[in-house]
Design a binder for these strands. Structure first.
Lengths: 101, 101
DNA sequence: CAGGATCCGCGTGGATACTG
DNA sequence: CAGTATCCACGCGGATCCTG
């Protein structure tokens, strides 16, 4: 359910109860295409991890945030961030390597 | 670094300081091919997550375990397990869905 | 603005056979 | 036992164009 190149990246942006618009996410994640963004969001919505809030108005406005079940992922995401931080704190390794992924 | 279909599955088996042989992992992970197993192990070895211990003898014996840096992933893996467990504890949803992945 | 629809390359991953 | 070598399908993900 968390596989794929973008899932975790998206989740990290929704981390901590953030509510973001489609375009916000698009701008926040350089390199992602609209197709991938919507595709991954839809899958996670289907899996009950993120919820989609449509505001009926023009221009359209759609927001995304974590569901309650998605919020439960926060400790795990946090642990992953801690892990990545440890990596950078390590000696020789180049710091970019941990970020690049 | 954790992407791909098998990385996490393999890590879950090396969880808690387990030291396993190649064939142990192969048997423990139904459906994985030798190619994928060795490929993913090599990548994680290169990333410094798992370490490869070769015992020079016949028949060959090679063991795999987490490096110190790999051990640092345990809290994160644990959080993910907790997350998955919460899923199953939830009402309506079919329990298989959380496992299937 | 928030997508939908298409086309397409290329890498991931599966199956099988072979080896030191 | 612990890999290596090869072939190949499929689908992920990128690019581009279109729409309510």
């Amino acid at each position: 359910m968390l596989e794929g190149r973008w899932k975790l990246v998206i989740l990290f942006h929704l981390f901590g109860g953030q509510v973001l618009r489609f375009s916000d996410l698009e701008r926040a994640i350089p390199g992602i295409s609209q197709k991938m963004l919507i595709q991954q969001l839809r899958q996670m919505e289907k899996d009950g991890i993120v919820s989609r809030i449509v505001h009926h108005q023009v221009p359209p406005k759609v927001e995304y945030c974590l569901t309650q079940w998605g919020q439960a992922l926060c400790p795990a995401l946090d642990a992953l961030l801690t892990w990545a931080a440890q990596r950078e704190a390590m000696d020789g390794g180049n710091p970019a390597a941990a970020v690049r992924n």
